[in-house]
């Protein structure tokens, strides 16, 4: 099970991080658009596009926590009226994305992968926020909700 992010401005996680370290600015001063991708062997890939500083906390942290605690979670996209619904059934979780298909993933791995993605994004956002202070608050918000045990894969 893999959950990873890509940024529209810089590309995959590595490229995004490199761009952040090089202080490359985002195309839009107040936005950092990108995609969170959920992948698992034999299942359709789910890609969710949004402003990542909003989507990652909502999906990879808060929804992951709700899924872990209650077996049900939803996360909204903010740039467009989309919703991601996660419903645990036994060891698996059904994921449905507005106009974006559905897939079934292993539940525990999904939660861990979501948090791993959040942790990596937090690292990226930390670096990015250093050079682009308007995103510093978002980096702090994400850090604040990120569970302490979550660590990059």
């Amino acid at each position: 099970m893999q959950v990873y992010f890509t940024t529209s401005d810089f590309g995959d996680e590595a490229a995004s991080r490199a761009a952040a370290e090089m202080a490359q600015p985002p195309t839009e001063k107040y936005h950092l658009y990108g995609t969170v991708v959920l992948e698992h062997t034999g299942q359709p890939r789910l890609s969710i596009y949004d402003d990542l500083p909003f989507l990652v906390p909502a999906l990879c942290v808060e929804a992951a926590t709700a899924l872990e605690q209650t077996g049900v979670a939803t996360a909204n996209t903010i740039d467009w009226p989309g919703t991601i619904r996660l419903t645990a059934t036994g060891d698996t979780v059904d994921a449905q994305v507005t106009e974006g298909g559905s897939a079934t993933f292993p539940c525990v791995e999904t939660i861990a992968a979501l948090r791993g993605c959040a942790a990596r994004f937090a690292e990226f956002l930390d670096i990015f926020g250093e050079f682009h202070p308007q995103f510093a608050a978002k980096a702090a918000e994400l850090r604040a909700v990120l569970p302490s045990e979550a660590a990059p894969d």
């Binding site: 529209s8 658009y33 995609t35 890609s47 596009y49 949004d50 996209t77 467009w80 507005t98």
Partner: peptide, 10 residues
């Protein structure tokens, strides 16, 4: 040019 990968544009 700002539609990006958004599925819907409300």
């Amino acid at each position: 040019t700002k539609m990006g990968g958004a599925v819907l544009h409300s």
